[in-house]
Amino acid sequence: MQEILVANNLRKSFKLSAKQRKLEKTDVAVKEAVKDLSFTAYKGEIFGLLGPNGAGKTTTLRMLATLIKPDSGDALIEGKSILADCNDVRRRIGFLTSELKLEDFFTPDYLFDFFGSLYGVDKTELSNRKRTLFSRFGIDRFAEVKFGNLSTGMKQKVSLVVSIVHDPELVIFDEPTNGLDVITAKVVTDFLEELRRDGKTIILSTHIFSLVEKLCDRVGIIIDGRMIKLDTLENLTRDANLEETFFAIYNEVTGGRL
């Protein structure tokens, strides 16, 4: 199996402000969000990162997407380091997260072309991709409506399409179905399966068990910044369903603390 992403001992900590320290009832000035995280994702698989809120999933994904730098450790995406070859990494990944917004003022058509141009996509290829993706997601009817005037579901579809404008090998999706109705959510999950069929690698971060059970080939469970368990979905759900397995692991690690 071809390795697309290899993350080695990623660590990331953040300084806590006096206010945050008070809220979390701690004297420690630094919070370790990600502790020595390592994992590998292979070509053509959907790799799920499962964990509760604040476990370090999003921080990990932001490091992989080169938005923030790890304190130590590195990750290679198709052999390119997220530290040394930022721009090569950026060319190879698509990142969809609620943190990255599109300008309300522009239309989906304009946004697709603008980001396509920034990624250096050839004009004919860009136009073909736009036609295919826009009709696949039903964006074509809204192509000239300002992004700010679109519905939540349509906004998410446009964000998704823009994030993969350059046809990346590795697609990182952070909670892609959050806030979507069942129909739009299904369009998104169907598309993830389609991407897998096309041989793309997908990192999917979520806390929704059913989504992981439906889509993922392998799952990494992150709790408190550490990769507690990493296995195939099949192995993880052999004796119990994913939810039961997760809570068994969670209770073991945290002692049942909520």
């Binding site: 997407a65 080169t66 938005l67 721009n87 943190e99 990255l100 917004k101 980001f115 990624y119």
Partner: peptide, 17 residues
């Protein structure tokens, strides 16, 4: 404004210098 609205971050994940 772009930073506040999160649209700057979208530009920062592109390979543009």
């Amino acid at each position: 404004g772009e930073k506040e609205r999160g649209t700057m971050a979208t530009m920062l994940i592109t390979p543009v210098n």
